[in-house]
């Protein structure tokens, strides 16, 4: 079983988001970057699958050299090898094209992504990759077992859950319940130093969207406090003043 896990490098969830250069760039100053949490779940599940059967897990990241500490962390968690495609991840389409170009010759059985990156929240890479590689794509999976070349999956749908089967190869995106993340141990950290981390140059494609500026939401006005004894008045205020019920 050959599994590819796509990982992005994202600001830690506690980050206070600010922008620089006249609101055109995310301000990375003092920001701690982590492996996107959903990608980390995908990685852990991939490792569980290859430990149960045989196989290898490759992680791929589209990013510049500053993402390498987190790529190494993925190796420390247990990935067998890593590939970094040396480019700024311009948009989802661009990232998917880079990964598809790399994955085409590699015959992966399963390609996993996170359900979305927690910075840009696009959730588009799994579907784009599926189409570019001519594979089915299954979004927001909460369970996956693979036997005899068929995956049994569960995914979130609006208002419920669906169970489905899919033969390999396919692309799937990881949702929260898939598994629990794994913390790298000392042995893993030592081993990661000598595991292969290949750096590839990007293909010549261009991004077809461009983020021109960012803006922070306007701060909320003061909170109107209601006394506990008058708590029932809330309903009236929501009807007559806020007009939401």
């Amino acid at each position: 079983m050959k599994i590819l896990v796509c990982m992005s490098n994202v600001p830690d969830t506690t980050t206070k988001v600010t922008f620089a250069e006249n609101n055109t760039k995310f301000n990375t100053q003092g920001v701690q970057f982590i492996i996107n949490p959903y990608d980390e779940l995908a990685l852990t599940r991939a490792l569980e699958i290859t430990e149960k059967q045989t196989g290898t897990v490759t992680v791929v990241n589209v990013g510049l050299a500053d993402t390498e500490p987190n790529v190494r962390k993925a190796l420390a968690i247990g990935a067998h090898e890593a590939v970094r495609i040396n480019a700024e991840p311009l948009d989802a389409y661009f990232v998917a094209e880079q990964i598809a170009h790399y994955a085409k010759g590699e015959n992966f059985d399963v390609i996993l992504t996170g359900r979305e990156s927690i910075d840009y929240n696009g959730g588009m890479v799994a579907g784009l990759l599926g189409e570019m590689l001519n594979m089915p794509s299954i979004n927001v999976i909460t369970a996956i077992e693979i036997e005899n070349g068929i995956a049994h999956l569960e995914r979130d749908i609006d208002g419920g859950r669906e169970k489905l089967d899919c033969p390999i190869p396919f692309v799937a995106s990881a949702q929260k319940e898939l598994t629990e993340p794994r913390i790298p141990n000392m042995r893993g950290i030592m081993a990661a130093r000598t595991k292969p981390l290949k750096v590839l140059e990007p293909t010549g494609s261009q991004a077809n969207t461009l983020t021109t500026s960012f803006e922070l939401p306007a701060p909320k006005g003061a909170c109107k406090l209601i006394d506990v004894a008058d708590a029932g008045k809330l309903i009236e205020l929501l009807h007559t003043e806020a007009k939401v019920i």
Binding site: P11, D119, F214, E215, L216
Partner: peptide, 12 residues
């Protein structure tokens, strides 16, 4: 973007 912590304007 950033799960609602900010907005981004994007040209297509």
């Amino acid at each position: 973007v950033f799960s609602g912590k900010a907005y981004a304007d994007v040209n297509v």
